[in-house]
Amino acid sequence: MLEARLEQANLLKKVVDAIKDLVQDCNFDCNDSGIALQAMDNSHVALVSMMLKSESFSPFRCDRNIALGINLTSLTKVLRAAQNEDILTLKAEDAPDVVNLVFESAESDRISEYDIKLMDIDQEHLGIPETEYAATISMPSAEFQRICRDLMALSESVSIECSKEGVKFACQGDIGSGSVTLRSHTNVDKPEMNVEIDLTEPVSLTFSLKYLVGFCKASSLSGQVKLCLSNEVPLLVEYALANNSYLRFYLAPKIGD
């Protein structure tokens, strides 16, 4: 059986909120290392990969591999009943029909309990190769969100060019063009404001802004976001969570002429 207790419901609320517009029905794969999710959007352009390590829960118990097929719209409805600060416990039997969610208020004696019916989801699972990326950029997640939103007002696509000079986000649209360039930057007092560019070779790739703006819904999960790029491979956008847990998005590039 599965029993996983989260100190704050907020974490799951934010994760689900960040992915629910991209993917609808997902398997939450539970085993003794934690709870994982991998799902592609309908157009097979973007992929979300979540890992909530067992260390992110206290306690965490899962004796067998259990796949919880959950509709994220249903999960969102139930999670709305949880206060951000509530303690959240997920429970399921070994061959479950439902997943049980318990929300406990730390301040009062209120306990709420919900069951969500599970679905049989036959999901394609992709093997993501280990990649040595040519460029890795760490930057404030709010900055990345702002750049994507600003450029989407002009164009559907953004080119991300990374060189020794820095990283340039550029777009061209009907009304004109725009770009934002960031250079490495260290803020000793506020490390969350750092921009770090790690480059082994120059990279230039084009991506759909619609997807990037969608990924940025995860910004509240982490002060920093990491962008990993190599020419002609999907972009990795990573929001690191506590205890080595993470929320990652992969986006296929736009290629050729």
């Binding site: 352009v45 394609e124 992709l126 993501i128 696509s157 084009t206 999907p234 296929a252 736009k254």
Partner: peptide, 14 residues
């Protein structure tokens, strides 16, 4: 204009 690729081109099915 460049065309949107899909992930199947890069990631294998398991």
């Amino acid at each position: 204009p460049p065309k949107q690729a899909t992930l199947g081109k890069f990631f294998g099915r398991t």
